[in-house]
Simulated assay, not measured.
Amino acid sequence: MSNPYLCPNCKTNRSRFNLIQQVATPVKMDAKNGAIIEQYEENNAGPLHMTYRGPELRVQCATCGLIEEERMFIKRAQQQ
């Protein structure tokens, strides 16, 4: 379902946005040099590795540059 957006910062932009897809890649890194030692499958990272729980989509206002979760832009549009 589509929802209208309104930027909560500049409060004028209703039509120009950048949609940012967030894709988490679980990895194990070398603590000394930062090299990736191991790249895990999404459901097989092990008991000491918390899975990513953030939003899959973020929105950037193409007028003022604000980047927030999609729900912030939707809620602002609903208030108007």
Score class of each variant (00 low, 15 high):
M29P: 02
P26H: 07
E41Q: 13
I37G: 00
I36Q: 12
P55G: 11
Q21G: 07
Y52K: 06
V27G: 05
R16Q: 13
Q22V: 15
K28S: 10
A31Q: 10
A45T: 13
C64S: 02
F17Q: 07
G46E: 04
R53V: 09
K28G: 06
Q39L: 08
I67N: 00
P47C: 09
D30G: 06
E38K: 15
Y40D: 03
L66M: 07
E41S: 14
E56K: 15
N43I: 04
S15I: 02
A35C: 06
H49M: 08
A62D: 11
K32R: 13
M50G: 09
Q39K: 15
A31W: 03
L19T: 13
I37K: 02
N18P: 00
K28Y: 04
A45M: 11
V23D: 12
A62L: 05
A24Y: 04
Q39I: 14
V59K: 01
A31D: 10
R58N: 12
D30M: 05
L57K: 04
R58V: 11
S15M: 04
I20W: 07
C61E: 01
K32W: 08
N18I: 15
N43A: 13
L57G: 00
G54M: 03
L66K: 02
K32C: 07
N18D: 05
A45D: 06
E41I: 07
L48R: 11
G65L: 00
L48E: 12
I20D: 01
L19K: 12
G65T: 01
R16V: 06
L66D: 01
G54Q: 03
A35G: 12
T25I: 14
A31N: 10
N18F: 13
I36H: 11
E68Y: 03
P26W: 06
E68Q: 11
L66G: 02
A45C: 11
V59D: 03
L57A: 04
V27A: 02
P26N: 07
A24R: 05
E68H: 02
Y40M: 02
S15C: 04
P55H: 14
Y52H: 12
G65M: 01
N43D: 14
G34K: 05
E56P: 09
E42Q: 14
E38Y: 03
Q39F: 05
V23S: 08
K28F: 04
N18V: 15
F17S: 07
M50R: 14
R58G: 00
E38I: 10
T25E: 13
V23K: 08
E38V: 08
Q21K: 13
A35I: 09
A35F: 07
E42V: 15
T63L: 03
L48W: 10
K28D: 10
L57T: 06
P55F: 12
F17P: 04
L57R: 07
C61H: 00
Y40R: 01
R53Q: 15
E42A: 15
F17V: 08
R53Y: 10
K28I: 07
